[in-house]
Design a protein around this nucleic acid. Structure first.
Lengths: 347, 347
DNA sequence: ACGCACTCCGTAAACGTTTACGACTGTAGG
DNA sequence: CCTACAGTCGTAAACGTTTACGGAGTGCGT
């Protein structure tokens, strides 16, 4: 089956009518439409997207850009896959498809994005891992490509984004630990330029100062957010002359490595050192002792992202009237065993 | 900037010449080419991919289909991201781009694939998670779409695939455990129709029979390959009246849940029960005790996949003369602490 | 018999490229 | 002076759709 032309010939109908029948246009006879659909099904005809999108100027595809840097690969968990399922549930209602664009690690994300957008392969974009200043945001705004960002940025004052509530998490974690009697609280953050780290640390610092605890830079451990990073973080913690009694991890998988390094030195997490994790609970719940962790529903986050994106697109805006506003996504603490002790009982 | 027409007008050159200049065709004056390239750069012109691929019938994009079923989302690790980096390193040489197509969990993968292929959005496909009988393979063969599968299948006798050496792993693991004195060895397998499980169990059974050990079906635990699955697997193991002394995990993340459940019952992995994992080591190395695990280089696997795919495509075949043959990908055992004891010392 | 509204369908133009073909130079060789 | 040829470039057709427009047919009321 080559194209709509062959299909039309096979039916002895003009190609215009065939096209209208397939696309559900009103001015076509019921019986004719039935025949066309049947023949299309039988011959396995499906419209060529190049021709179609050339004519209509749209592709019905949304792109989700993810980075495949070394760090991302190491970190990889179910985050993006979980989000995609929420996204797809929204897009499916409008017969939109989702495409993931993995940016090669040796290419500038901005250049990659430009290339992909130029291809006109997607109608809109979702970008993630936003940097403090991120040229992609300027570019997309200027080119008038609908987009939504997963992560705030300083690059523009007004663009659609959803971000996790890092500040709330850091704040909540610090408050909780202080209530348990902790005064020396360490925290981990990524070494990259990702915006997330800055917000995390700032909020941690403010929470401490609220309780008149001096901010000690040596307690901020900048390290890769992986199991290995967790191992190294623990190593650094153990080297400090005045050892902290608690640590907040920015990524829960780090706990695996952290636990191991601690136990190698006979330090028992949840007894000698309180640990709180961040981002996803199910995984960490199976550690021993189970990790206190801030939970997030990836599916719901995906749904919100999808709705916000469609709200920026003229063709779909009407369906999502209230979804244009930026969201700081709240997280819920799932208490585990890893911080369930009162530091007063120590020493 | 609208299209090549505007660019041509701006230069007072015909659009044919502009196109030739941009595409590096030989019959265009050096000076003209320079001017065209400069103007294109300045005005930010990039060819519309719809028009281009409509004319040439190719998109320079390779699709990688991944499933986002509930099981896959739970399992998600760095597997696909790791493979993509290898793939991209190969594709980059030919200016090909990689696209990930996440199949929604509520859609039949076969239908999804058909829709995506019909879109003519990709020139070739990489499919993964092949089932025992997998209609996608028939479809792609019949439609003459170049493809390569990550995983064997019974669906066709002759198609390009690479698969992990499940048989070698099961065989090696059983041999190793028997050499350490184990006689009762449990094994986990996925409950799905994925082909992988069958090969894994078959080989396990054959290895046992080689040593005159009776195959006991109750030692085969069919369970989800996630942390939670690991937890449940341990639970089932503990319920067996005659408890095994070793267990082989088909997915190393299961070890996290397994460890927890064992420790809850005071059973110490690596001392009371030998554990061997499968698929990726770096993650499992940070468990305590560290997991003996079969290692795989995702990057290299991606490279091999990419080469094999290109070897099936007429336009690139010449560059990859020896890459057409199917590969059973070997894995290397990284010994850890989780099976480093002689069962003879027990009891 | 005529006009009108309505339903259905065919025609052809457009979308933005690439490329086969031929035309136009200028130069070299006879 | 004629021919051959290489180097450039313009022209126009083609790729597979969608859709604005108009025309043919029917039924109905006048």
């Amino acid at each position: 089956m080559k194209g709509i032309r062959q299909l039309a010939e096979h039916l002895n109908i003009s190609i215009g009518t065939v096209s209208r029948a397939l696309n559900g246009k009103p001015d076509v006879n019921q019986e004719t439409r039935r025949r066309v659909l049947a023949a299309a099904e039988e011959l396995g005809y499906v419209a060529n997207q190049s021709g179609r999108s050339l004519r209509q100027g749209e592709t019905k595809v949304i792109g989700l850009m993810i980075e495949s840097s070394k760090e991302t690969v190491e970190n990889a968990d179910n985050f993006f896959l979980g989000v995609t399922s929420g996204l797809q549930s929204v897009f499916a209602r409008h017969k939109l498809d989702l495409l993931m664009l993995p940016c090669p690690s040796d290419e500038d994300p901005h250049e990659y994005l430009k290339r992909m957008v130029a291809r006109r392969i997607v109608d809109a974009m979702i970008i993630s891992d936003t940097q403090r200043v991120d040229r992609r945001i300027d570019f997309l705004s200027r080119a008038k490509i609908p987009f939504v960002a997963l992560g705030r940025s300083l690059s523009a004052s007004n663009f659609p984004w959803i971000d996790l509530d890092f500040e709330g998490v850091a704040d909540h974690a610090v408050e909780r630990l202080i209530a348990l009697g902790h005064r020396r609280i360490a925290i981990t953050a990524p070494s990259s330029e990702a915006n997330l780290g800055y917000l995390f640390i700032d909020s941690y610092r403010r929470a401490l100062e609220r309780h008149d605890i001096l901010f000690d830079p040596s307690l901020v451990i900048r390290i890769r957010s992986s199991e290995q990073g967790g191992y190294q973080a623990a190593h650094e913690l153990l080297l400090l002359e005045e050892r902290p009694t608690a640590v907040i991890l920015i990524y829960e998988l780090m706990a695996i490595g952290l636990y191991r390094r601690l136990m190698e030195s006979g330090v028992m997490p949840g007894r000698d050192l309180a640990v709180i994790g961040f981002r996803d609970a199910p995984r960490a719940r199976f550690l021993q002792p189970s990790l206190s962790c801030f939970r997030i529903s990836l599916y719901d986050l995906g749904v919100a992202l999808g709705r916000m994106l469609l709200a920026t697109m003229p063709a779909y805006r009407e369906f999502y009237p209230g979804d244009g506003r930026n969201i700081i996504w709240p997280l819920e603490l799932m208490p585990g065993e890893s911080d369930a002790f009162d530091v007063g009982a120590m020493v």
